[in-house]
Design a protein around this nucleic acid. Structure first.
Lengths: 206, 206
DNA sequence: GTCTATATTTCGATAGAC
DNA sequence: GTCTATCGAAATATAGAC
């Protein structure tokens, strides 16, 4: 009951969610504190009771978005019931989900916008999200190589070959979000499955 | 002599170049008309003598950037002296050059920022740049398939496999431009060559 | 074609009542 | 913790002299 009453109040989580949506839609400079407050149903002055500054608000949006993003991928890496190829397929599904659908993946262009002003945000995003995702995926592939299921390969090139398409797909879907035929031009499932097939063929090849 | 005198004046090309740099560095909303004027060495009111509005200025930056971007790729497609694999390698070099180094490729995240407000800019960018680049690259691969040099493949997945890594590399280099070790983390040539090798192995495979 | 000056709005952020 | 009211700065854009 207490939880229900407070659920409609602009708690911190609701503020970060509303702010994230506005940053995604209009960029950092284009998302005003007034608009964030209005989306929360409060006035701008009240918003400053919850966050000390716009920079701190954006930093919190990024930080709290990636904090849980690598857990699902870690579980796939550690799942003993999966064969090597099924593990790669599951990992692709999780990467596409995080990069294309979740705020943390879609925030990348906004981080690029403020990277020069707030280098700490970019650095934290890189270390806490990008590097971790790459490390887990590399570990999944390395395990397959160690057991002879996958062929050795150029790790740097394979990293970009795996993460490049979903990141670009996410950016393209933001760029062309106003197109009525966006989901026909940029179908997530078809790209993901076709992409995964091609990568698996490379991993099998000697 | 006349050309030399006017070369130092803020002609249209110089204005677009300065504006592009500022849009890339600070985003659409973060790049002010005052800053653009200052970069051209004139006052803000004078800038409005050359462009009617900020939206028109940004639109011109995008349009005039992609107008010549597909010519080099077309020449590679039509070069009869190249073998199929060498043609693919040359095309990869051109794609990475355009996407990673040229303004037109790097403007993608800024277009995403304004896509909801200026859908026409996003549509023109898609039709005049993205679609054309994809069409030419598909034609290069299809010619190899027709002559038996390359194996048939999923065209949509291959498109994303080819363009995904360079676009993501470009975005990542913008995001992490403040890192002193950026060129070590994100080396363009190494990624490009490793990427091209992997794609060629896929094209050769049955 | 560039300038000074200004109109108008909105920005991020603060003060202080309740 | 939300509100009204406001600050100083900066935004886009315009007017009019030269």
């Amino acid at each position: 009951m207490q939880a229900e009453t407070h659920a409609e109040l602009p708690r911190r989580g609701a503020i970060l969610a509303a702010a994230t949506q506005l940053f995604l839609a209009h960029g950092y400079a284009g998302a005003s504190m007034s608009a964030v407050a209005a989306a929360c149903g409060i006035r701008k002055a009240s918003l400053y009771h919850h966050v000390p500054s716009k920079e701190a608000l954006f930093s919190a949006c990024v930080t709290e978005a990636y904090d849980a993003a690598t857990e699902a991928l870690s579980r796939i890496r550690d799942d003993p019931t999966l064969g090597h190829e099924d593990r790669v397929r599951a990992a692709f599904g999780e990467v596409y989900r995080v990069v294309v659908d979740s705020p943390v993946g879609r925030l990348s262009p906004i981080i690029a916008e403020v990277a020069l002003r707030f280098p700490g945000v970019a650095r934290a995003f890189h270390e806490s999200f990008v590097v971790r995702q790459h490390e887990i995926m590399n570990a999944i592939l390395a395990a397959g190589v160690a057991e002879g299921a996958f062929a050795p390969h150029d790790v740097l090139a394979m990293e970009h070959l795996i993460f490049g398409p979903p990141v670009t797909l996410s950016l393209s879907r933001e760029m062309f979000a106003s197109f009525e035929d966006r989901d026909v031009l940029l179908p997530v499932e078809r790209v993901r499955d076709g992409h995964c097939d091609l990568v698996l063929r490379l991993l099998r090849a000697s």
